[in-house]
Amino acid sequence: MIARRVVLGAFGLAVLLDLVSLAAGHDAGHTVAKPLLMPLLAAWAALSGAPRLLLAALLCGWGGDILLLSDAEPAFLAGMASFAAGHICYLVLFTRYGSKGYGSKRYGSRTYGGARARGRLLVPLYATALVATVLLLWPDLPADLRVPVAGYSLLLTAMAYTAAARLGLLAGLGGALFLLSDTLIATGVADWPQPPRPDLWIMLTYIAAQFLLAKGALGALRTRPAPAASHAEVPSTIP
């Protein structure tokens, strides 16, 4: 418990240093603080009993963070690929442990039905957001980035939808903030008008997104053990 609090406090200090540095236009502070964020969040998650897929997703985010410190296009594409790998980890994790997978007697049909109904309501919302974003950005993106950005947007939207549909409010808010953060990046690449200090808003929404996704996933794991953990579903290996 003490170790978790110490690591979470260190994460909070790194977040504060990063956001204050961006607000003040102090690039050196951002360069120092940004690489610390996801390893500290992953350490806190590990001490909280996180599965490997959650840790992998956070460390893929760390790889993307490091790569996006460079403005070079190859680094941007590599960073996008690293984040995409993280979204795949999240997708597998949410699909495996999300409430939609629970129709057993232990949890009853209410949880399953609620997740299914929530998913049906969210489909048109996320589908509309994806199509509108890609169509609006497409003409203004560099030609060689259009297809990668569209493919990444599809994966990101699928992750955000799955977080909301299967894990509920906390993780769903994290997924939505991830969408917002990456949309801000994409509009910058498309050379659209930006708010003051766009990097501050990008990092603020991104950090909140990763924290909420991690916390939402940990909460789901605490309240809903993996299906394989159910005695009724695990075949006995004892002769």
Rank of each mutant, 00 (worst) to 15 (best):
A33V: 02
V20G: 08
T133W: 00
S230M: 10
G29Y: 00
G79N: 09
Y102G: 03
G108F: 05
A28K: 02
W62T: 03
P139H: 00
S99T: 15
D18Q: 15
D191Y: 04
L22Y: 03
V234Y: 05
L125M: 07
V134Y: 00
G98L: 01
V7N: 03
L155V: 11
F211H: 07
G216T: 07
A143F: 04
G63F: 00
M80F: 01
G188H: 05
L200D: 08
L213R: 10
G103I: 06
A42D: 09
G114V: 05
P148C: 03
L41Y: 01
D199L: 12
A45K: 02
P139Q: 02
T111G: 07
W192D: 07
A165D: 13
G98S: 05
W138E: 10
T183V: 14
L13E: 06
D18W: 01
T111C: 13
K105Q: 15
E73Q: 11
L55D: 07
R106Y: 02
T237I: 13
T223N: 12
L41K: 05
G25A: 08
G12R: 06
M203W: 00
G188W: 01
L177H: 07
A209E: 08
I66T: 13
L41C: 08
T133M: 01
G61L: 05
E73L: 15
L136E: 03
L179G: 13
D65R: 09
L91T: 03
A46N: 07
T223F: 06
P225G: 10
L135H: 01
A84N: 14
P239C: 06
W192M: 12
R197D: 13
G12N: 04
P139F: 00
T111Y: 03
W44P: 11
A78M: 08
T223H: 11
D27M: 11
W44F: 06
F11W: 00
M1D: 06
G49N: 02
A43N: 08
G175W: 05
A150N: 00
M203A: 05
T237E: 11
R224H: 14
L54W: 00
L212N: 10
H87A: 13
A78T: 03
